[in-house]
Computed example of a mutant assay.
Amino acid sequence: MTSDQAVAVAGERDTKSDRFRSTAQVLPLPEGLYLISVTPPRQAPVIVRGVSFPSVQLTSIPQPGSVAPRFLHKGELNSSAWLSGTDQAVVVVPAGASPLLITNYLYGGELQVCLDVQVKRLDNVATAPTVGLRLHTHIQQVGEVSFAAGEWAAAEDAPFWVEAIRVEVTPTVGQLLQYRVPGVSTSEGNWMPAPGLLGAPGGRPLSGIAFRLLPPLASTHRVVYGARFLRHGEMEAVDGEPCRSPQPQDPLIALRVAILPR
């Protein structure tokens, strides 16, 4: 549900005792991982066309040269998230990220109370620590270049394709991280355990990517990743879902990956 849709819903039942209100807060966050949760007040929620109020929308304010944070909510990685009840979302804040925009929506009488929003940094969570990794990509006409977790691995602004990748992780993770090119019948379609090489330097471009975690790591963490294709653009996925362009012969020109606590 977008802000415009919410306003439209409110407009259908706009009375003195039953109306739509919102308050917004801008929150810049340094690079890192955060857990945003909400605590509902002691009041019955108002349900309007399947949407529970009060509710909170998480998004960001676009700024020139900045990167939008990503929100992992209910198994999906998106540029925004809606929270209500006791919902929570993990926020991936890259370096140079746009500030968060937290909007609290109310629907009903003046006595309705906003949700309590809590932001907690996850970098030092002992029970489910973040997993460091290094993504090594072999890029057409560039060679091998290394990138940190969550960074876009690409030839800057040039549309050169990715020919091969390998991922280095800590010894405790090792082969519990695997990756492959989905939708192909060659050896690239088989799951490759880290830190194995997927693809061939100097060869044809990768046509897609997927990452997965094996137990016991999969019970405490999830792997999130994205891919950018020459014609189709960007795609996001989690936990083994395929990132592959629906257009034939569309080369992969950038990708990123991170392992996050659940």
Rank of each mutant, 00 (worst) to 15 (best):
S37M: 02
F160H: 13
V142P: 00
C243A: 15
T172D: 14
P129E: 08
L260V: 15
E156C: 00
P205I: 03
R166P: 00
P69Q: 07
A210H: 04
Q175E: 13
I165Q: 04
T103K: 14
E168S: 10
R42D: 15
I259F: 06
K16T: 06
F147N: 09
G226Q: 13
T130D: 00
P159R: 08
V93R: 09
V7M: 10
R166L: 02
D123S: 13
P261G: 10
Q43P: 02
N190T: 09
G109I: 03
V56D: 02
L100T: 11
A227Q: 03
R231L: 08
M192T: 15
N190C: 09
T172W: 09
L135T: 08
V125A: 14
R21N: 09
A158G: 00
G96R: 06
T130M: 13
Q112I: 15
V113E: 13
L133I: 10
L27S: 09
L115K: 10
G32I: 03
A24I: 07
A68R: 14
P64A: 12
E234C: 05
L72M: 13
T103V: 15
S60M: 05
A164I: 02
S37N: 04
D14F: 13
L217D: 08
S187H: 14
T172Q: 09
A89K: 07
S22C: 08
L100Q: 09
S84F: 14
F229V: 05
Q63C: 04
Y225L: 06
Q141F: 12
P248W: 02
V93A: 07
